[in-house]
Nucleic acid binder design. Structure first.
Lengths: 253, 253
DNA sequence: CGCAAAGTTGAGCGTCCTCAAGCAGCGTGG
DNA sequence: CCACGCTGCTTGAGGACGCTCAACTTTGCG
C-alpha cells in the first residue's frame, strides 16, 4: 500500500506563468473598499444577515467574525452548508435565481460589509483587479463545497469531525490568527447537521479524539478545543481512508 | 430584537425591478460565442477534457453531451462531484488556485467549447451581458453543490437515488429534452461514488424503486430508466424526509 | 437556587456496507 | 458459430457503524 499520490501542492508551478497570484485577504478587502461604496454593519451572535426568501440585490463580505449559511429545502430540510470567515463572500447563490436561497447568520459579534450587486458589476468593468478578487472568491466557495462533499462521501464519522476541526484551524491560520486553539461558536447539533451526523455522534467523536490525544478541551463547557499537532489530525484522516475505503473510492475509469 | 438596520432602510427595492431575468441556455451560449473567440472540440466517451493537475488557463462550456468532474484529494480519495449538461461551465474551481483541481471527463460523444480565462475577463469588461452569463453559471454551480450536500446529509440511500434521477430528468427538461426516459451514461459504481454509497446499494435502491413503480427499466442492460411520473419521485423523497429525519434536521436557532 | 438548554454516555437496533456468488451482455478468438 | 473471458449488474447473508432512545451531568441564566 505504499502508493505515492502526487498531490497538487507538490507539483512545481513554473513561476513565470503564474496566473493572477494569490492575493492576501486584507488586500482583497482593500481592493473592494476602494472600488465600490461599502455598507458596513455590525452583527451580533445569532443575528440574521439575510433570509433565504429575500430578493437578491447585494452581496456580503465578512470583515470580522464568523457566519454560517443554512440551506432550506422546499420539504423542510435544513442544513448548514458553509461556515464563512474573514474575506469570504456571502449571497453568491442568489445571482442565478434572484433569491438568496440560504439564510446567512452571524455566529459571533462581527462586521459584515455589503455592496449592491449592480454596483459591483459596474465597478468590475472599471477595475479588473476587483473582478479577479470576486471571481477568486466564488471559485474558493466552489472548492470549499467540493471539499465538504468529498468528506461527507468518503470519511467515517470520527474522521469527518477531525477534518472539520483541521479545516477550521486552517482557515484561522490562513488569516494570520492563532490556530492551535479553536473556539467553536457552534453547538454539537449544528456541527452534526453540517457533517451529516447526529449531535451524539459528534460528541462521541470529540471524546474519542480527545482520548487519543489529537485534541484537548480547554474549558469545561468543551467549546474551546486545543489542537496540539495539526498535522496529526490530517494523518488521522488519511489513516481512516487507507484502512477502510479502498472499495468505495474505486472508480474504474 | 426588532432592530432596524440602516442597510435595510437604504434599500427601497421597488417590486418592479426584477433582477436580471433568467436567460435561456441557447441564448447564454450565443452571448458567449458572440463575445469571445471560442475553441470547439469534439469529445468521445471517457475522453478527458482536462486534468486536475493541469495549470488553469481556460474555462470550458458544455455545448453538446454530458460531462463529469472528479475531485481528487491528496490522500487518494476521489469523488464525482458534479455532472454537467449543456450550458454548464467547467473549470471554475481553478480560478482561485491556478490549477483545475478536478478531472473533467466526457461521458458520451459531445462538443465542448473553451475560452481562455484572460480573454473572458477582458470581454466581460466590454460586454456586461457576458459577465451576467458567467456569474449566473458560477452561481448555479454553487447551488447545485449545495443541493448535493443537502441530499447527502439528509436523505437515506433510496431517496438519494430517487433525488439523483429526479434532478437528472429536471436537467434534461430544462434544456428542452424529453425527460421521461433517462439514459444514464454512468456505471452503478460512479453513481454510488457520487451519492456516497456503494454500487450494491445503488443497485438495490434502483430495484426497489422499480418494484414500487416509481421507475421502469427499458433495456435489459438497465442503463435506460423511464420515469412515468416525475412528481412521484419528488413525493417519495419528501415522504422519506417526513417519516424519518425529524431529528437530524432540528437546528435550534 | 431552580430551571432550561447543551453535552455526555450507554444500550439496543436499523440501515447500509462487506463479502460472496451468480447472471447477463459483449467482444475476442479458436 | 459457440466457447471463453471480461466487465458490469443483481441479489443474498452477515456484520459494523452510526442512529435512536434514554438517563444523567454540566452550564448558563433568570
Amino acid at each position: 500500500m505504499a502508493i505515492t499520490y502526487t498531490t497538487l501542492e507538490e507539483l512545481p508551478m513554473p513561476a513565470a506563468c503564474e496566473p493572477t497570484p494569490a492575493m492576501d485577504i486584507g488586500r482583497q478587502l482593500a481592493v473592494l473598499a476602494d472600488s465600490v461604496p461599502i455598507t458596513r454593519r455590525v452583527v451580533r451572535p445569532g443575528e440574521r444577515i439575510y433570509h433565504a426568501v429575500d430578493r437578491f440585490d447585494r452581496l456580503y463580505v465578512v470583515n470580522v467574525g464568523i457566519c454560517k449559511t443554512v440551506n432550506l429545502s422546499a420539504d423542510g430540510r435544513e442544513q448548514v452548508v458553509a461556515v464563512h470567515f474573514k474575506g469570504d463572500w456571502l449571497g453568491v447563490g442568489g445571482i442565478a435565481t434572484g433569491r438568496y436561497g440560504c439564510d446567512a447568520i452571524a455566529m459571533d459579534t462581527g462586521e459584515i460589509w455589503s455592496v449592491p450587486y449592480e454596483a459591483l458589476t459596474t465597478a468590475c468593468s472599471r477595475c479588473p483587479e476587483l473582478l479577479t478578487v470576486f471571481h477568486q472568491a466564488m471559485s474558493r466557495e466552489i472548492l470549499r463545497e467540493r471539499a465538504s462533499m468529498l468528506a461527507l462521501c468518503t470519511l467515517p464519522a470520527d474522521a469527518r469531525v477531525a477534518e472539520f476541526l483541521r479545516r477550521w484551524a486552517e482557515a484561522l491560520s490562513e488569516r494570520g490568527l492563532r490556530s492551535d486553539c479553536v473556539g467553536l461558536p457552534m453547538s454539537r447539533a449544528e456541527i452534526g447537521n453540517f457533517l451529516g451526523m447526529t449531535l451524539e455522534s459528534v460528541s462521541r467523536a470529540l471524546s474519542r479524539l480527545a482520548r487519543d490525544g489529537l485534541i484537548q478541551f480547554v474549558d469545561r463547557a468543551r467549546r474551546q478545543i486545543e489542537i496540539p499537532v495539526p498535522a496529526a489530525l490530517a494523518a488521522f484522516v488519511s489513516r481512516c481512508v487507507s484502512e477502510a475505503d479502498s472499495r468505495r473510492g474505486a472508480l474504474a475509469c
